[in-house]
Design a protein around this nucleic acid. Sequence first.
DNA 1: TTATCCAAGATTTTT
DNA 2: TCTTGGATAA
Length: 683
Amino acid sequence: MSPKLNPQQLAAVKTIDHPLLVLAGAGSGKTRVITEKIAYLVRQGTPARHIAAVTFTNKAAREMKSRVSKLLDDKQSRGLRVSTFHSLGLDILRAEYKTLEYKSSISLFDEQDRLSLLKNLVSHGIKDCEEDQIDQYNWQIGQWKNAFVTPKQALHLPDAALHAPARLYEAYTRSLKAYNAVDFDDLILLPVLLFQQHAPVLEKWQNRIRYLLVDEYQDTNITQYQLVKLLAGNLGRFTVVGDDDQSIYAWRGAQPENLSQLQKDFGRLQVIKLEQNYRSAGRILKVANHLIANNPHTFEKKLWSELGFGDPLRVLSHKNDIAEAKQIVAEIVHHRFKTGGSYGDYAILYRGNHQSRLFEKELRENNVPYFISGSASFFSHAEIKDVLAYLRLLVNPGDDAAFLRVINTPRREIGPTTLEKLGAYANERHISLFDACSEFGLQQRISEKSTQRLHKFCELITDTAREVETGDTFKTIHRLIDQIHYPSWLQENSKTPAAAERRMKNVLELVEWLERIAVKDGSSDDGDAGASATHAAGAGKSLAEVIAKVMLLDILDRNQEEQAGDQVSLMTLHAAKGLEFPHVFMIGMEENLLPHQNSIETDNIEEERRLAYVGITRAQRTLTFSYCTHRKRYGEMSECEPSRFLAELPEEDLEWANKKQLAPEEVKQRGKANLANLKAMLG
DNA sequence: TTATCCAAGATTTTT
DNA sequence: TCTTGGATAA
């Protein structure tokens, strides 16, 4: 059996009559506390169906589920809700769409859908909005949604510069509603609005979720905190677990202040600190503590461990990024051979996804198995977006984003001119593009031929949708893919036949995946991130339900389960949060990379430092930093400075390899200079 | 309406 | 360097 909980962990598990904040340092067993607590609650008599645990990533949710299943049997954990915030929000929306005056089968807009809708609105003339400001507006709208600011409130903000985006925000919200669609942010925002405005609905959910556990609480934004607060109600039956030093999502609206806010909002709040680390060698923790001490703190915390002090941390320097990749891959190969370990013991961590490229190449050339987490999402593939758009349209013809994506894919000879007219018409009549197609008024504006083509397309969708409802859904989907000649379209539009084949395989994999999720009923598996109370056992899921769920996931998420094997892990520092590896390489320890240039410019070094802290605390036994003196940027060679963070680490714990490149004193000197520069800049 | 070419801009991090 | 989008030609 697993080792005993330490006194603090035990206290955290057993505190169930007070709202509880657990400040859990890296590697202090926070997931264990949450899972043990779920088991404890169940054993104390709270039925699992009244317990909900929310996380931020699918990966974390999956991990938690699998660990709970080791503590409780199927019967005990029946109805337990372990899901991401967004997935919980989706469940709420799907159950309560009527109250929000939505129709069933809501479409979920992804980031691209959202952007193209905004573009469309601006081009159709929202007052004062300028086309080249779209990204700015989009960002602002996101900020508002994260901060629980409604369009109405945004419109009343005094800052005149915000009037244009506020008007766009309002129009955008109206459009989404008209399309029967929501975006990612709405999955949190709408439930909060719903709960605020409809007390009986809130009560129903408070009764359903009688104990709430929140993982990575420091990553919650204002809206998410509202949701937590509403669900927890006055009784405050919740446990949140977080670590302000690992707050690395402020750019996404996360409010680490939510940690201290909790004390203000819940007077009975208890706070428990977990400081014993079960992951890393003492020296790694010493270095991590040393680095993070450069940040201001509201909660003091110092990690320690009983796992021995360990080797010094190494710092490698390279003449360029190619050399960096070559040497580190060579080291991994050598080290693994020497120690007889597994490739799965090694992780290469970096700031930006693009940094993986050279390493990938090098690993491939050396026949080293590797696994990249997070890079290009499965859903960024055009073929996946296409097929999903078809399915979205089948389920919700009002989904204009989906309509636009597939109306001319594969080619149906419906071009921008026709669509422009169609769009204008739909806009005037306040109807969806799909509905506009069959309106008589449209025929007077566009050519006979175009009308026919549009009609033909609509017919295809309508007929297929009918078939989906009455017949075998997935047979129909396969038929549709065939009917539109998608395979040959791929062949014509891929660079190589092999690429076409691969893309077709993706499509088939997607459909198979959807099918699995549809058949599977709910609670415990990878695809479905939350047991849904909305349908009975054995019922299977509607296509709409499956699609919405799937958009919150990623096929990569699923593959990560198979990742466990003998493979080197490559991922961003963000993606590494929550993971651990015996041997960690943090590459690209350079100014403008870590800390990232944008963060330097916006004076947000603290979050970058936390990012470095997260990276360091992933390591169990050895940790190696590396930096280059030159690196190719945008295809051009440029000079690099070692990261200021290297200069912040205790020198006695570092070992400088390849000293010929740059003496440590010099690195320190430069690091200090960088620091001084920054201070000067801040005045 | 579609295909092709060229220029410009991108590389932070994600549900 | 690679991708994307716009302009232009067919």
